[in-house]
Measured scan of single mutants.
Amino acid sequence: MFYPNSPQTSPQLTQIPYGQQYAMMQRQIQQPYHPFATTEPQARLYPYHYQGPIQQEQGGFITQQSTAASPQYVQMRVTPVDQSIMSGYPNQTANGSSSSSFNYNIHPQQQQQQQQQQQQLRHHAMPVGSVPLQDDRYRKQLIVNYLAPDVTSTDLHELFSRFGELDGARIIYDKQTNMSKGYGFVYFCHAEDAKEAVERMSGYEFHGKWLKVGYSTNPLNIVPSNSSPYVHAGSRGAAG
């Protein structure tokens, strides 16, 4: 039997160049792979992502010199942007860049009308829970959420009447099932009393439920100042 490094198959040491006398086997001759043993700084910083320098080929596509990437890492192929796409944008300079302001050559009167329309939209648009300043009635009506099913309009009136005089209180019921929808409205005579009720009743436990109280901004629920107070009856038909 002959071994790869046996004296019968191995040459004389004098015939082997210096430095390879003890590297006779194939696994010894093959050098191990060192990912950080390279002179390129990109490979030292990113050993798993770097795959060699990027070269520009004919046709405008950018390719990489090395083989496919590892399945664990996804390499994105980048193509140059066609400058003709950006030619339609206004205020574009000769080098292809555009300024931040756009001039669509709008007539001054049209621009003024658009600004007025935007101001009107901001004036009428009102986020949930906010209180408008032009109508004091919005500051007097509250919406009470997360009410228990057994709470009546009379219970709601008695709960909030300790903060001040009320114009009314009612629970909203479903017309088909005649069941409470879980929320109601309270109408105060003074805005200061309503503000105190919002601050003190939010998070209050009532009939096993934690109440959420806020201003009601729905104009359909506003009680006119010259109208008669609501009837605080315990029956659902009268309260709904």
Rank of each mutant, 00 (worst) to 15 (best):
Q20S: 09
P7S: 09
P11D: 04
H34L: 07
T217F: 02
V74E: 13
Q112V: 08
S180V: 01
A43D: 10
Q176G: 07
E192C: 13
R170N: 02
Q119P: 07
V151N: 01
F36H: 15
G240W: 13
T154S: 06
A94P: 09
Q28H: 11
E196G: 14
V74Q: 13
G52Y: 10
S98W: 14
Y204T: 13
Q111C: 13
G96A: 12
Q26V: 03
H123D: 07
E199S: 13
H123R: 12
G52F: 05
P219Y: 00
Q28E: 05
Q21C: 04
T14E: 05
I62Y: 13
L211V: 06
G214M: 02
P47N: 10
H232K: 09
S235W: 14
Q12H: 12
V223K: 14
G234M: 13
Y73H: 14
D136H: 08
Q120S: 08
V151T: 05
Y46P: 05
N221D: 08
P219S: 01
T154A: 07
Q58W: 15
Q12K: 12
G214S: 13
S70N: 15
Q8H: 11
D174H: 05
S98P: 11
Y230C: 09
A68S: 11
P90A: 11
Q134G: 06
L121G: 06
E199I: 15
D193G: 13
F2P: 14
A194P: 01
R170K: 14
E57C: 08
V198Y: 15
Q114S: 08
T9G: 06
G182E: 01
Y204G: 03
S101M: 11
V213T: 05
Y48C: 13
N226D: 08
I171Q: 01
R162C: 14
P149R: 14
E192L: 05
D136L: 08
G59D: 10
A125G: 07
S153N: 14
N103S: 05
G214L: 02
S87H: 08
E199R: 15
R27D: 03
L159M: 12
H124Q: 09
N105T: 06
Y138W: 10
S235F: 09
Y183A: 02
G184W: 00
I106G: 09
A238R: 09
Q20M: 15
P229Y: 14
E40N: 13
C189Y: 09
P71S: 11
Q30F: 14
I54T: 11
V81W: 09
Q112I: 06
V131C: 07
G129E: 05
V231S: 06
D174Q: 12
M25K: 15
Y89A: 05
P132G: 06
H34S: 13
Q111S: 06
H232L: 12
Q112K: 12
R44S: 04
D82Y: 09
I29D: 07
F36Q: 15
N178E: 13
D155E: 12
Q114N: 09
I62N: 12
I29C: 15
Y22I: 04
M179C: 05
P47L: 01
P229E: 05
D150N: 13
Q120F: 13
W210C: 03
A23W: 03
S101R: 12
G237I: 11
L45I: 14
L159Q: 03
G60I: 02
D193T: 13
G214Q: 05
Y18E: 07
H34N: 11
H207L: 04
P32W: 04
G182A: 12
T152D: 09
Y230L: 04
K175E: 02
Y50A: 13
Y46F: 08
R200L: 10
Q28M: 02
N5G: 07
D193Q: 13
L147S: 01
Q28T: 07
T67N: 12
K175C: 08
P4G: 10
T79S: 12
T38D: 10
S10Q: 06
Y22D: 08
D136R: 06
F2L: 14
S99Q: 06
A233H: 06
G59Y: 05
N103D: 05
D82I: 07
N178K: 03
G234N: 05
E196F: 15
F2Q: 12
F2M: 15
I85A: 09
V186H: 01
R27S: 04
P229R: 05
A69M: 05
M179N: 04
Y3L: 08
S216T: 13
Q28Y: 05
Q134Y: 06
V131D: 12
D193C: 13
S101T: 11
Q75M: 01
P90W: 08
M86A: 11
S235H: 14
K209V: 01
G168H: 00
P53W: 03
P32E: 04
A23P: 12
I54K: 15
P47C: 02
P108L: 08
Q42H: 10
N218C: 02
M201A: 03
S161D: 12
P71L: 05
M126V: 10
S225Y: 10
T38S: 12
F102H: 04
R236S: 08
T79M: 07
S225L: 13
N221Q: 10
H34E: 15
F2I: 11
Q20L: 04
G88I: 05
S70Y: 04
P224A: 04
G168C: 00
I62S: 13
M24D: 09
A23Y: 06
N105L: 06
Y146K: 02
D135G: 04
G234L: 13
I172P: 00
A125C: 04
V198W: 15
T63A: 11
G214D: 06
P80A: 07
G59S: 07
